[in-house]
Design a protein around this nucleic acid. Sequence first.
DNA 1: GTCTTGATCTCGGCT
DNA 2: AGCCGAGGTCAAGAC
Lengths: 223, 223
Amino acid sequence: MRLVIAQCTVDYVGRLTAHLPSARRLLLIKADGSVSVHADDRAYKPLNWMSPPCWIAEDTSGERPVWVVENKAGEQLRITIEDIEHDSEHELGVDPGLVKDGVEAHLQALLAEHVDLLGVGYTLVRREYMTAIGPVDLLCRDEEGKTVAVEVKRRGEIDGVEQLTRYLDLLNRDSLIAPVSGVFAAQQIKPQARTLATDRGIRCVTLDYDKMRGLDSDEYRLF
Amino acid sequence: MRLVIAQCTVDYVGRLTAHLPSARRLLLIKADGSVSVHADDRAYKPLNWMSPPCWIAEDTSGERPVWVVENKAGEQLRITIEDIEHDSEHELGVDPGLVKDGVEAHLQALLAEHVDLLGVGYTLVRREYMTAIGPVDLLCRDEEGKTVAVEVKRRGEIDGVEQLTRYLDLLNRDSLIAPVSGVFAAQQIKPQARTLATDRGIRCVTLDYDKMRGLDSDEYRLF
DNA sequence: GTCTTGATCTCGGCT
DNA sequence: AGCCGAGGTCAAGAC
């Protein structure tokens, strides 16, 4: 990893066109060839960047050196260097990688163990019930034995309702399990999504992750 | 901006729980207090981070120093420092910021000024016409005064057709403006999206961004 | 390879 | 402050 602090201008021509006027910035050149340009704010997003695979070349033909970073598609990031304040190289090695806990997969696993949270007398038929257009998160039966398709999300938005609607359309064509009703379960459900779901006869259930975690054994607590 | 290369472990407890085993990484502390942890690959995304506003404190009570970065919500990023290879501080100043061109907002603005590109005699009623399920990009009237809902995209895919379909369903329930027809306008329209749109009676229009830019005053030419 | 979908999405805009 | 849509989304997994 090479760290450069330099006064520079940056131009990107690719999926869009973008320009950065002259300023002092951090230029980050990683071992995979990727380049990113950082200002002194925002933790997450660089001002501009080129993702790997890409290749960096220095053009010294002009008045000032220009770093030309190009990818396969011909998109270019051009960094014109005016002045270098710092330039260092560091050997980092391969990173062992991130271990995560608390994402949608966990939510689904927890809910599968407590489908009663969806309604009294609910029982689980299958997790990831496969259909021709993809897997339904949970397939359940209600108190009366009728089939219920459940879509689980961390954040319930319109896309999720559309997804569940597609599953319901398909499942309801299968005379063996029809009629199938739908439940949209999420930690948070956006008003627009709720409106659309309700309009389509889909019931909305808000989930409390911490509570569900509390109900559960230690099995899903990874560390 | 402070640049640190260090052997470290990282733990995040917040919206999720995450852990990074010991390895040599770049720690980036920016002027706004934000902290990010980078491995030697991926231009765009840090391994872990804390977005501003947040505050960093060093806990030296234990065997090893721990940087505790915390935000208002109580989310914590804890970096345990095992060994520091490099540590430097740089004054960057405020960045003049990115100038972008060619995004959907420009397309919509340009098209709003030239709705005649959608059809002879078309007039604009409103940009971002608000409905209960979101804003319609452009609401127009055709030559005969009938209402037309327009969805503008850079890349026209099936999602966009679904979006427009929802708007049309809703708008057509409003007897004051029904019947409402639809136009799907994009720089590029995927064959599948075109098929679906046509099947639903939605007209497709391909936009030429450079041409529209040429028609326009210099107002939207940013550089 | 292509496609789908989640994300500590981030970010900007508007109500 | 909350909601909503766009993103050079990115990135991981499925097919």
